[in-house]
Design a protein around this nucleic acid. Structure first.
Lengths: 145, 145
DNA sequence: TATATCTCCATCAAAACGGTCGGCATTCCG
DNA sequence: CGGAATGCCGACCGTTTTGATGGAGATATA
């Protein structure tokens, strides 16, 4: 399961993608529309800002905008940023590799072997699906992809 | 990430698969060989027993044996049993479906749409890989599958 | 009967999760 | 210039989950 926080982050970003071009959205707008606790969303957007996903303006007429084109922001990127590694085992993670303390030899670890396949399949989807893709898909009739 | 507990469960089961036919393994043997905290393993095996995966004998010469052939025990089954749903969103789970409180319409939820693909890919691997498969794979040279 | 094993229940510390609060900094508008 | 609206930031907090550990009891063998 992905965290509630990650879900909120993705929903907020989708909202920004759907916003009229060049216009920004305020935390409170997104919070209201997406039913996200406002103060929690604040934290999330701040984190996304620190990682260069969005930018913000303060004061009256403040708000958030995407910093990169929606085509260049993948689900994998956001998920790693909020929830950490995508791989189901630390010894399979790209961004946070750690040996399993109890594992004698990774090459002959049956569990690793199986989850390696899971990891590849998952990454295939998450690292090749952008926010733009996600928004587009929903507009199309069922089963197009 | 799967839990440490699930990892232990899978390692213990693999150990049972690898054990000489018809012979049982004691908690303490498995714990020693697989470097799993003994008391924790005890709980895990008990849980597997309650779910009909293994059976046990008490007293001197006691121990655990698989209750089903290794070909019939999948990674998905064990994982669901120990860690709960495999799906990354509650609204995509087979065994514990729950609506997302904040989601107006599942059909038009961009996030759900993307993670649906992840879920299918993950299930494809986990529900079609048995303990027997896992043990076999490791014996074979790289890249056979 | 002595001993080794599984069983069962209770407890526990640490971390993660999902928020919430209050104050400060910046920007706009009148 | 002053006030209001907005984002920024750090601290805090209650609950649940995780990863165990401890101890007494049941059961089987020799």
């Amino acid at each position: 399961m992905i965290s509630q926080k990650a879900k909120y982050a993705l929903r907020a970003l989708v909202a920004l993608v759907r916003a009229p071009a060049e216009s920004s959205l305020m935390i409170s707008e997104i919070a209201r529309d997406q039913k996200i606790p406002k103060k929690f969303l604040e934290q999330i957007l701040l984190e996304l800002k620190r990682h260069g996903i969005v930018m913000s303006r303060r004061g009256r007429l403040g708000g958030y905008v995407l910093l990169k084109p929606a085509e260049k922001i993948t689900f994998g990127e956001i998920l790693r940023l909020i929830d950490g590694p995508i791989a189901p085992l630390p010894c399979l993670s790209k961004i946070a590799y750690r040996r399993c303390a109890d594992c004698a030899d990774e090459g002959s670890c049956e569990i690793r072997h199986v989850f390696q396949r899971v990891t590849l399949a998952t990454r295939e989807v998450l690292d090749h699906t952008s926010l733009a893709d996600a928004v587009k898909e929903v507009l199309l009739p069922e089963g197009v992809l």
